[in-house]
Design a protein around this nucleic acid. Structure first.
Length: 436
RNA sequence: CGGGACGUAGCACAGCCUGGUAGUGCGCCUGCUUCGGGAGCAGGAGGCCGGAGGUUCGAAUCCUCUCGUCCCGACCA
């Protein structure tokens, strides 16, 4: 993308409504614009980020056997009356009436809808287990939206649902999802730690929140440093092997980790002092098992081995996709701007032409731009060098290929790694090779 | 939902108390000089002062209502 022809409106000053780093930087880097309280438009660069996150989330879901699908945003009130949640949900649910006075709602979640959908498709115990997910916009009419996309009213969410014959099966599904989550967050460049969460009336220990470590996070967290060393991508766990899942679950849950609300001083005292870590975190995902809470009242049954009706056990698994965009920035930025992990950056690199109009600069830049097949950002604007450097740092491209009149004559560029600030002079070919 | 603020140019803000031709900085446009970390000079465009009523000869300014946005608390992917 050529910056001179792109809608990436960077701002030198911070709009007054933005309080926290990610919100400020998302506005300043031209990623999003607010259109109403807690509702955001994703501008071209922001949309690329969101798609990158969604793609990784989806890939890891499919890697553990979750099927991708898409359910609508608008749902019927009748569906929610079947589970009893229509009245229980409260004013957070946006209720809508159509021209025929039918009661509709903008979905805050999809348990009812999917349970309804699978009712006619799942007939026999042979049809189980099933895991399905979609990535769709949700709406929750938060009393007080804030922190930009981290707590908006409209948000993009991955929600997955599992259907199993019994509790033991549900545990397998639950662990598969947890494995997918650890891999997902690591690919997104995040340190995420699963922490035991409230299970409410369901009970048991099958509810975990995933907390991303970020100094500006909303909740305090306490955890064992053991989590810092685990490489979930390299660790080989076969999601089809119950034994591997067991081993994985042990590893992911045995060390101490808790948010301040669930903090247990007695357990904390058992953690060796040199492994104690305290910090702040942002919740980016939540998984839980809820048994037959929806399948039972909504009449979802399959025939069991003996021919009798069996009510499937369910679980649901959420990831705040749009929230992650903010969380990643909270976890990865400096005074100059965003520092995108390679996997989610809107552009792998920016090509900074320090002197548009200079024959050598233009030619070398075009050559570099062509090498990325249009996927890089080419800053071809008639701006001063300082402004371009500032914008490049602000937007957080992982690599900056700086082309100036001095080096261009001999085909040399300066390659800067945003994360480290390291700069080296080398030929364009070497620079491209280094970026890979 | 309780408490507190704020709506004036694309962004940040002053002006309001004490009514009298709507301002400053950044950004934008033109020209010249500059040109490797947000340049200098000169000229220029851009505002129904959130909206509706009212008071007044006259309202950004005073009064009433309304809409919107933000902050603190309780709540949430």
């Amino acid at each position: 993308m050529r910056l001179s022809r792109s809608l990436i409106p960077t701002l030198k000053e911070t709009p007054s409504e933005a309080q926290i780093a990610s919100h400020r930087l998302m506005l300043r880097a031209g990623l999003v614009r607010q259109t109403a309280s807690g509702i955001y438009a994703w501008l071209p660069a922001g949309w690329k980020v969101l798609q990158n996150i969604a793609r990784i989330v989806a890939e890891e879901q499919e890697a553990v056997g979750t099927q991708a699908m898409l359910m609508p945003t608008i749902q019927s009130a009748d569906l929610w009356r079947q589970s009893g949640r229509y009245d229980a949900y409260g004013p957070e649910m946006l209720r809508i009436t159509d021209r025929h006075q039918r009661e509709l709602l903008y979905g805050p979640t999809n348990e009812e809808m999917l349970t309804d959908l699978v009712r006619s498709g799942l007939k026999s115990y042979r049809d189980l287990p099933q895991m399905l997910f979609h990535i769709q916009w949700k709406f929750r009419d938060e009393v007080r939206p804030r922190f930009g996309v981290m707590r908006g009213r409209e948000f993009l969410m991955k929600d997955a649902y599992s259907f199993d014959l019994d509790y033991d099966g549900a545990v397998i599904s639950y662990r598969k999802q947890m494995l997918a989550y650890m891999r997902t967050f690591q690919r997104l460049g995040l340190k995420a730690i699963p922490m035991v969460a409230d299970t409410g009336p369901i009970g048991g220990n099958l509810s975990h929140e995933f907390i991303v470590l970020a100094p500006t996070g909303e909740s305090g967290v306490f955890f064992d440093a053991a989590f810092e060393e685990i490489d979930w991508e390299k660790a080989s766990f076969d999601s089809e092997s119950p034994a591997d899942l067991e081993r994985f679950f042990q590893l992911a849950t045995e060390a101490y980790a808790a948010t301040d609300e669930k903090h247990d001083e007695a357990e904390w005292a058992k953690v060796p002092a040199d492994r104690k870590r305290e910090g702040r975190g942002i919740e980016v995902g939540h998984i839980f098992y809820f048994g037959t809470k929806y399948s039972e009242p909504m009449g979802l049954t399959v025939s069991g081995r003996d021919g009798a009706a069996v009510v499937p056990h369910m679980g649901s698994y959420g990831v705040g996709v749009s929230r992650l965009a903010g969380a990643i920035i909270e976890a990865s930025h400096d005074d100059a701007g965003i520092i995108w992990p390679d996997s989610v950056a809107p552009f792998p690199a920016v090509i900074v032409n320090l002197k548009p109009g200079d024959e050598a600069c233009d030619a070398l830049c075009e050559q570099a731009y062509a090498a990325f097949k249009g996927k890089a950002l080419y800053d071809d604007r008639e701006e001063r060098a300082g402004a371009k450097f500032a914008d490049a740092d602000l937007m957080g491209h992982p690599w900056q290929i700086v082309v100036g009149p001095r080096g261009a004559k001999t085909g040399m560029v300066e390659l800067k790694r945003r994360a480290t600030g390291e700069k080296v002079e080398l030929s364009l070919a070497d620079a491209l090779a280094k970026i890979g």
